[in-house]
Write a protein that binds this DNA or RNA. Structure first.
Lengths: 132, 132
DNA sequence: TACTATACCTTGCGCCGCTATGTATTGCAA
DNA sequence: TTGCAATACATAGCGGCGCAAGGTATAGTA
């Protein structure tokens, strides 16, 4: 699925922090984990992930170390810091607040939305606009 | 609650489109509706909303008309177009895909996250990193 | 030998939220 | 009647960031 850039921006930090909360990891593995978690619906490129990792490191949310994998390859492992753990919790709160609002408004519209996307005529809503 | 700018960016379009799917509305009323829907947790400024409305109009997702309210005031009412309704459905799909991924990873961590934010020591995770 | 997957990185473009600022009107309270 | 808050719209400049494109290098495999 093609995700809007704003949604990618909003989800990249919480997703990365949460993945590192599970266990230390490195760039390529994080890309795979995101694909996995979303059942293949979210497809990040490495070109967008590395800047995210560098930013999170600059902000002190994560820490990097070089390590040599069993394969003989160099890998840069990242670890969640205490500060990063707090940040993750905060981002979780924010996401859930927005999600609650969206669910609130979608919940009241699920049936009509489905009907309309199926091509049925929308109930006419003009005439007197609501006086919010 | 203070929301990160990325989250604001990601939620502004779906929220506005969904609110207009309920009924035609105008700037100030939309601000109030957002506050209402989020139980006061989301506080948008008008300075960020108007550019959003102009963009959505430029993209053809909504349409504007001037109207004089019972109060005698000029108000710019916005209406969701058919294109906007499709866009809303698409953004809903995207949001739910990301939300599912986040729930997936948070679900496996809810207890530990709560424990750690309460100040308990995190389980040491260094030593052997996971081989993702 | 060549190709794919792994593994890291940076540059430039374009977009957009946010703060600050501006204008104008209505209604209420001092 | 004076002043403030709420209503109602709008724009300019700044800073930040995704993303595509491009780059380097190694390991494993055909």
């Amino acid at each position: 699925m093609e995700l809007s850039k704003d949604l990618v921006a909003a989800s990249s930090s919480p997703l990365v922090l949460s993945i590192l909360a599970e266990a230390d990891s490195y760039g390529y593995a994080i890309l795979r984990r995101v694909r996995e978690l979303s059942d293949g619906q979210i497809e990040w490129t490495d070109g967008m992930l590395y800047p995210v990792l560098h930013r999170l490191e600059r902000l002190g949310h994560i820490e990097a170390r070089w390590e040599v994998a069993e394969t003989g390859r160099q890998r840069k492992y990242y670890r969640l810091t205490d500060d990063g753990r707090r940040q993750m919790a905060e981002e979780q709160r924010q996401w859930q607040a927005v999600d609650a609002a969206l669910r609130g408004i979608w919940g009241a519209q699920i049936a009509p939305t489905l009907a309309r996307t199926l091509g049925e005529p929308a109930p006419t809503r003009h005439g007197r606009p609501s006086l919010a």
